[in-house]
Every structure is written in C-alpha cells, then in structure tokens.
C-alpha cells in the first residue's frame, strides 16, 4: 500500500520545513543572517495507464491516463538575500553592506570565504579581522597611533592622527559578488564558500558593478521575519498532522482488508 510511503515522504518534508524554520528563528539576532526557505518538489510518477495508449482496436486513444504520484521531496533550501535592517552601533570598525555583495576573508587554510557580517576588529598588530579572527581582504593594517578610523561608502579606509591635519588613506575594502548567491555553500560562523554552482567571484569596489556600498558604524541585523516564520511553523505543524492522519486512514483500510476472510 503506497499511501503509507507517500504520507511518510510528506511527514519528513514537513519535518524538514520545521528544522529550517527553527534554524531561522534561532538566528533571529545573528548579524548578517539571511533566512532560509525549504522548497519542495513532487516525486516521481508511476504511469498506471499511460496517456496516449490506444484503448481500442479502432485506434481510440486514452486521453489522460492514470498517473500516481509517489510523494514529495525537498528540492532546495534557498536563501532569501533580502537586505536586513541596519543597526547603528557607533563602532568605527562596524560596517554594514547596503546592497549586494560580500566581504572577502582569508580562512586559516589560506582559501577565501565570504561574509556579510561586518562587525570587524583589529588584532594586536592592527590588522582588520572578523570576529573569528579571519583577515579581511585586502589586508589593511591600522597604525598604532591612529586616533580615528573612517571608512567611507566606497570602502576607502582613512586613519586620522593627532599630529596631522590630513587623514592618511590606508587602503580600500573591496566587495565580492556572485552570479548565483544561492549556490554559495554556508559553512557556519556567517561564512560562505564558493561552489561550482555559485559561479566565479568577481571583486569590485563598493558601489560599482551592482554591488552595494559600505556604511560605517552600523551592522546588518538578521533579516528573519519572526511573524512569517511563526505562521510557516503553524502551517508545517498542521501539514505534519494531516500526513499523519493519512497514515492512520491507510492503516485502517489495510486493517479492513485483513479482516475479510
């Protein structure tokens, strides 16, 4: 009896939806987090009577046939890269990206990773790093005696000194874009890495090539919409219960069948 298996695929799909929602809600306050959404797709179809089969000797064709779907499967977990709210923090190394694009960071193994979390820090040597200590490209070092750091919308980092009037240009933070943001692989800690599906990264100055601009003194809040997630959660829970009901009904039908001698 396939109805049992079909309903089981439905239950596991709804369960996965709850898992995605709970991860979104858990990251409600994670800087730069974009909510995920589980996308489903129907499973294979069993062709009981193929449409177009000739049903009689005179060539009458069966117009619709009988196809039985075998359930549902998760097709993708897509990321909704909507702009999160910018929260003013006042920190001179807090930068939010307004628009598309990622900051490039260098992982301990030397490979690049990409993040939208712009709460940056400096090391003892003055190097600009993320909160996990990964170096932010292109590796700007802030002098010890710098009194003030200014980062403008185009990514230029200026240091002001007590004994000088003119600020000194230290470098420019560049942004990275991808053809397919959805294809990036999330590796945790707000980081993404490139895959074959994301396309090659292109590096550009903020505000060019369709990439966003930087805003100093702000961080991008999580763009999780709690109300939407909760309504989705209710839907997923009821969906799970409905599929469980189908299993019960199918079980009772089987029970009725076994009671006949």
């Amino acid at each position: 009896m396939r109805a049992l298996d079909i309903a089981a695929t439905g239950m596991s799909a709804q369960q996965m939806r709850v898992e995605v929602i709970s991860n979104n809600l858990a990251n409600m306050s994670t800087t730069g987090y974009s909510p995920r959404r589980a996308d489903f797709s129907d499973l294979h179809y069993q062709q009981v009577t193929r449409a177009g089969t000739i049903g009689a000797a005179d060539g009458t064709v069966v117009p619709a046939g009988v196809q039985i779907g075998l359930g549902v499967r998760p097709a993708a977990v897509t990321v909704n890269f909507a702009q999160g709210a910018l929260t003013a923090t006042g920190g001179d190394l807090d930068i939010a990206i307004e628009g598309r694009g990622y900051l490039e960071v260098t992982m301990p193994a030397g490979n690049p990773a990409y993040t939208r979390d712009g709460s940056l820090y400096r090391t003892g040597d003055g190097l600009i790093v993320t909160s996990d200590g990964h170096e932010v490209a292109p590796g700007i070092t802030i002098p010890d005696d710098a009194r003030q750091i200014t980062i403008n919308g185009d990514g230029e980092v200026y240091a002001g000194f007590l004994d000088r009037v003119e600020p000194e240009l230290l470098g420019r933070i560049t942004l990275v874009g991808f053809a397919n943001d959805q294809g990036l692989e999330a590796v945790g800690s707000n980081l993404f890495v490139e895959t074959a599906a994301s396309g090659a990264p292109f590096t550009a100055d903020p505000g060019t090539d369709g990439l966003g601009t930087l805003r100093q003194g702000h961080v991008e809040a999580s763009s999780v919409d709690a109300v939407r997630e909760i309504t989705e959660l209710i839907e997923a829970q009821r969906g799970y219960e409905l599929n469980a009901k189908v299993i019960t009904a199918a079980d009772q039908m089987l029970g009725a069948a076994t009671q006949v001698r």
């Binding site: 396939r2 309903a7 439905g10 039985i68 839907e235």
Partner: peptide, 22 residues
C-alpha cells in the same frame, strides 16, 4: 486504494510550490 494513494500524494504535496491537485 488507488484514489487513497492520490489523496496521500496531494496531502504530501500541500507545501510544494506550484503543485497542482490531482
């Protein structure tokens, strides 16, 4: 029995984007 399978498939796909009831 066959119709039960179709109903089960419809319910399993109640969250599938663009799914058409069978």
């Amino acid at each position: 029995m066959r119709e039960m399978q179709v109903v089960a498939n419809n319910i399993a796909n109640m969250a599938t984007t663009g799914y058409r009831r069978e």
